[in-house]
Design a protein around this nucleic acid. Structure first.
Lengths: 330, 330
DNA sequence: CTGTTAGCGCATTCAG
DNA sequence: CTGAATGCGCTAACAG
């Protein structure tokens, strides 16, 4: 920077000002500096700047998975909402492991982000403690934690699944099966399963047709195998609900492969309303959740909190919408 | 950190050492420091550390799209390869815009990454200049640029598509159609289309059945509409090749919806070998490319270059594999 | 094995 | 509108 300053015949301070918009530098000076920067190919060192200004310009976000998931849409929502704020996203993914999440939280906090966005409300005790002590806004998403750390942007996965069950029961289905992953690692998956059971119990329908198959997030292929399992154990199942659209799609294709008619022989519904649900044949019934909006709103809430814009009137909990999208597969 | 030092009764320097593995601190001291850190909930400030040590520990990567794409697998490959190196990924996506790429390059370079991974070999002149002047290793991926900036990990998208055409021509297909996006923004898409035309010309087959539809990356739904267009204009098309598996899947489903038998009435092939290609019904013929491996190898090459491990013997260009996967849709 | 000194490259603060 | 002094929190380099 001092090189630039020398070449432009000004002090380093003036260069620093010229590089920051909204600061008062005369047009002539600004232009000479711009030229010097251009000639030297200078790029500001923000890590030095943030040490001095005590603002890193980072926002951290931790999601379970980056590919084939709704969470990448959330990441997109975050990035888009951050556009123009001068904030940059530090993204990490946990592979659905809370231990990995703890590592990531620590790695992120070392970079002194100005806020952090998490997926879900389950963390290791140490992870939680680090977050509480970090002194930055924390947004938990995709869930409704019983004891939020700070702010929340999400919805109840259990309620969403209950709504799906009720909607389908309203159409006359009685024998429901559920396909999900094996472990409790996928908190949202577990909550969906719990919602499935709750709704059926309330309706007085059997709620024991539960297939656990594959490590979350379960793939299309695993969905295909799971539906085979299900039909072997409970051949008269009328409708299979799946933890996500991907497994539901795998199940749907497998049924077609076996000559079963969907929804006549067996109905199938997913969760998430991925693009594939709207496009496959038959089109799939699912639960639409506002993945992108969760990201947008989380980032928005974060920037508002950082800027302390009416910090007191900020809702600590934002509920995002979900709705059942009935299509041809049920 | 001085708080920690005081509490542990040592100097700040010793705390700094204790926090860095591989440095010599007595076991007793180390333990006292660990306890002080724990009591105070201290987390190292890496932005300060990197200013001092002149190593930020960042690696930047820029991909076109984060969701529904092979690039998220590449990002995963990068992250995984970086695991344990102490390097952290700064990820950005361009939405297939070189101007956005230029902005991102600048934003990334401000963070002083120790290396940068790009997608493709097309950049704005200024973007290219910034990269050349940055003084860090640059890896271009997913392509074979005519004039690489530095190192390359990729393959020829054109050759891969040529191989697919030749393979299918070898099975007797003669009337080929191509479905891709409208603009030249998607460089790799354009190269695939060029490969399509080249291969057919070489074979003496008609190469003018080109449907351009939708802004890249074209979606499943757009693939569905495009195949309808194609069948209206050239009803006797025997096989439709698509720029990606996603559009191919949309086309496949649309054909089924219209009662066309795949591959008997029309064959369909994709590109990328997404999970969906192996799982849909009928299973889809496609070109497998090593998305994850591209990321892994790019990150590996980067870390090797950074560590100057036999920098001279490092291959500047790594070609990654592609192969045609023949399935039921052709 | 541990401490001291100095400085990383910038922005804050105060003067002019 | 511009400049000078100062320090952000840490680590390199050297000394002990």
């Amino acid at each position: 920077m001092s090189d630039v300053a020398r070449r432009a015949g000004v002090s380093a301070m003036t260069v620093s000002r010229a590089l920051k918009e909204g600061s008062h530098v005369s047009k002539a000076t600004r232009e000479r500096i711009a030229q010097a920067i251009n000639e030297l190919g200078y790029v500001l060192d923000q890590s030095a700047g943030s040490l001095s200004s005590r603002r890193t310009g980072f926002v951290a976000a931790i999601i379970p998975s980056i590919n084939n998931s709704n969470f990448s849409d959330t990441a997109r929502g975050i990035t888009d909402a951050l556009e123009g704020t001068g904030l940059q996203l530090l993204l990490g993914y946990t592979n659905y492991s809370v231990d990995r999440e703890e590592e990531l939280i620590e790695a992120m906090l070392k970079r002194r982000p100005e806020g952090i966005i998490l997926t879900g409300g389950s963390h290791t005790p140490r992870g939680r403690r680090m977050l509480e002590q970090a002194g930055i806004p924390v947004i938990e998403t995709w869930d409704r934690p019983a004891q939020p750390i700070d702010k929340v942007v999400g919805f109840s996965n259990g309620e969403a699944m209950e709504l799906l069950v009720e909607t389908l029961a309203g159409k006359g289905y009685q024998r429901f099966g559920y396909i999900g992953g094996t472990t409790a690692r996928d908190t949202r998956g577990s909550q969906r399963r719990a919602g499935f059971v709750r709704a059926l119990e309330r309706l007085g329908l059997p709620s024991d047709r539960l297939i656990s198959f594959g490590v979350p997030p379960i793939s299309m292929e695993q969905g295909a195998q799971a539906v085979v399992n299900m039909l072997e154990r409970w051949p008269d199942t009328q409708v299979a609900l799946c933890v996500s659209d991907l497994s539901a799609f795998g199940a749907l294709m497998e049924c077609q492969r076996r000559g079963l008619k969907v929804p006549d022989d067996i109905a199938i519904a997913g969760f998430g309303d991925y693009e594939i649900a709207a496009c496959c044949h038959p089109r799939m019934t699912t639960v639409n959740v506002d993945c992108y909006g969760i990201g947008r709103q989380a980032a928005l809430k974060l920037t508002q909190t950082i800027q302390a814009v009416s910090a007191e009137t900020l809702e600590p909990i934002t509920l995002t919408s979900f709705r059942v999208v009935e299509r041809e597969s049920t």
